[in-house]
Nucleic acid binder design. Structure first.
Length: 576
DNA sequence: GCCGTTTTCGGCCCGACTGTTTTCAGTCG
């Protein structure tokens, strides 16, 4: 993908500029540009061709010139220039926690270090402590930082982060003098992965809470500790940060530490234009110093003339402008969900029976479900033979009648390597829901996989494509696929794409979910539950879907069962 | 380098903590 490649190069350019000590605002412009490019919903090539790139906020004349050169020559002129001064590897030093641009430059200039491996050698050879301004503690902390970096590459999936967040919250909640605990940061914004966990605590006696935090058994190492904040590395490999705030400032701190950073910067600018000054400690009138209190985030937004912006939208992707015009979307909530169209039973690799899954779904307030166990080719998941699938469909209908609860007989049908489905049309035609997905042949190239998925979308008996990109957070990358073409095909053939609620998947990615919204492709939010307990994945999945600005109308399992089924009758399902 | 509700020039967030410094720079969020 051009966009991601380009974004990466812009990021590297910014890193090298930091090390060189260039204008920090120019650096930020490149960082913003990198983020903007990564989030574009069309390829930069398309945007250049139709002249739309000039309208993208954050991409001005300078960056556009770089991007055009990149498309023509395959490299960024600015980056090439920097690389003649500083070897590219020096930028990787910034990935080590505790190392910023100044140290990276010093290590390169004074020790000739151009990679993390060389830095590690230098530290082990006790060369760091000989440098001016640095000592033995810094040397040790660099070695620890490198060790930590090796352990944990990148971000942590919610499958790991959520239980940790809940556990630590309850520990903090029971500390003396604690009034409330909130997990802020990207966790509260419902990102698919988190870099660390940010705990905000309103408490009378901060120091005692910080002690409780630092002594938790989950903590591997305390990285820093003061009277208002503390930072720790957890045994699970991610960081946890704690901040203590007075109750009356809590709303401001909550907003600030929920972020995102870009959202916060924009909010401060909005405040400034109104003669106000916004910080994590309050909102003050700049001229008089008068403090405007806020009992809640709602109050804070109201002071600035803005509608309340849900945390999931706070990425500076237009939510502040929309809030000013009172034009924010009515985001989907868990209560809107009426059905769950992808779950497994003991017929394949699930642990519960049809009846148990149905009863649990009904108890959670669902109005209908579909049972979609694995198809015959997926032997590792105990895929069903054609005969067993027929039997299961009969069993599903009988349980449905018995419980007086609509259960659709379905299947999660493998899309085989050649794009065909795993059963014949006669059998698939007898089912109410066919969810098609890829579980094999990940090594195929982008062209092959894209053709394969589009073939499944064209198949008149397919309703939904499940986990369309195959990513497994923290385990494997998505397979290469042209989602632009897949979404166009889904629009054309009237099919739906799934947002899979398994915390390691959350697939579709929010950027693609937003593309579906823009192109009128209905999404379906499913749990893919393999047990009764996993039906609870729905909550996290809905939160994630909100990041794509989805409203109930965009999500087909908020519709009544009749409307869901009717959708496929009214769309073009012809072959080719 | 980007941007425009006092603008085409002059802004662009800032406080807590650490280590090494004897009064502050670097890093982080």
């Amino acid at each position: 993908m051009d966009n991601l490649q380009l974004s990466w190069l812009l990021q590297e350019t910014a890193a090298l500029m930091e090390i060189k000590g260039e204008n920090p605002y120019k650096i930020r412009a490149y960082q913003n540009g990198a983020r903007t490019v990564a989030e574009l919903s069309s390829s930069v090539r398309t945007l250049i061709d139709n002249g739309e790139l000039a309208k993208v906020p954050g991409i001005g004349k300078g960056l556009r010139g770089q991007i055009e050169a990149y498309l023509q020559e395959g490299c960024l002129p600015e980056l090439e220039k920097l690389r003649t001064d500083i070897p590219a590897g020096v930028a990787s030093l910034l990935d080590v926690p505790g190392i910023g641009p100044k140290m990276a430059r010093q290590f390169y200039q004074e020790l000739g270090v151009t990679s993390v491996a060389e830095l590690e050698q230098a530290a082990q050879a006790r060369k760091i402590r000989q440098l001016r301004g640095l000592g033995g503690k810094t040397e040790m902390s660099i070695l620890r930082g490198i060790e930590r970096m090796k352990q944990r590459q990148g971000r942590t999936s919610l499958a790991i982060a959520r239980p940790l967040a809940e556990n630590i919250s309850s520990v903090l909640q029971s500390a003396p003098g604690v009034r409330r605990v909130v997990v802020a940061g990207s966790f509260r914004r419902c990102r698919d992965t988190v870099k660390d966990l940010d705990f905000l605590v309103a408490a009378d006696n901060g120091e005692r809470v910080i002690d409780v935090f630092a002594e938790m058994p989950l903590v591997q190492e305390v990285a820093g500790k003061g009277t208002k904040k503390a930072s720790a590395v957890l045994k699970a490999g991610l960081n946890a940060d704690l901040r203590i705030l007075p109750e009356e400032k809590f709303a401001f701190g909550l907003h600030y530490f929920t972020g995102s950073k870009d959202h916060n910067v924009h909010m401060r600018q909005i405040a400034e234009r109104q003669g106000l000054s916004l910080s994590e400690y309050g909102l003050t009138v700049s001229s008089t110093g008068e403090e405007l209190g806020a009992a809640s985030e709602e109050d804070l937004f109201e002071h600035l003339g803005l509608a309340y912006i849900p945390a999931e939208l706070r990425e500076d992707r237009g939510e502040i402008e929309a809030a000013a015009e009172n034009a924010l979307p009515e985001l989907i909530t868990l209560d809107d969900i009426q059905g769950d169209l992808h779950m497994h039973t003991s017929y394949s690799d699930g642990t519960n029976s049809i009846e148990e899954m149905a009863a649990a779904a009904k108890k959670r307030g669902l109005r209908y479900i579909a049972i979609c166990d694995h198809s015959k080719s997926l032997a590792v998941a105990n895929g069903m033979s054609a005969e067993l699938l027929r039997k299961q469909a009969a069993a599903v209908r009988s349980v449905s009648d018995k419980l007086g609860f609509p259960i659709l007989a379905g299947v999660e049908c493998d899309i085989l390597s050649d794009g065909s489905l795993d059963y014949d049309d006669a059998l698939l035609g007898d089912l109410e829901v066919v969810v098609a997905s890829i579980h094999s042949g990940f090594q195929q190239d982008e062209h092959q996989i894209t053709r394969r998925i589009i073939a499944a979308i064209k198949h008149p008996l397919t309703h939904i494509v499940a986990h369309p990109t195959g990513r497994m957070l923290g385990q494997r990358e998505a397979y290469p696929v042209d989602m632009d073409a897949v979404i166009d095909a889904a629009a054309h053939y009237g099919k739906m794409l799934e947002i899979n609620g398994t915390p390691e998947r959350l697939d579709l990615h929010e950027t693609y979910a937003a593309m579906c919204r823009e192109r009128d492709v209905p999404l379906v939010i499913n749990t893919d539950a393999h047990s009764v307990e996993q039906l609870d994945f729905m909550e996290g999945a809905v939160c994630y879907a909100r990041r794509a600005w989805l409203e109930p109308k965009h999500v087909a399992n908020t519709w009544s069962l009749a409307d869901f089924l009717a959708y496929f009758k009214t769309t073009d399902r012809s072959y080719r």
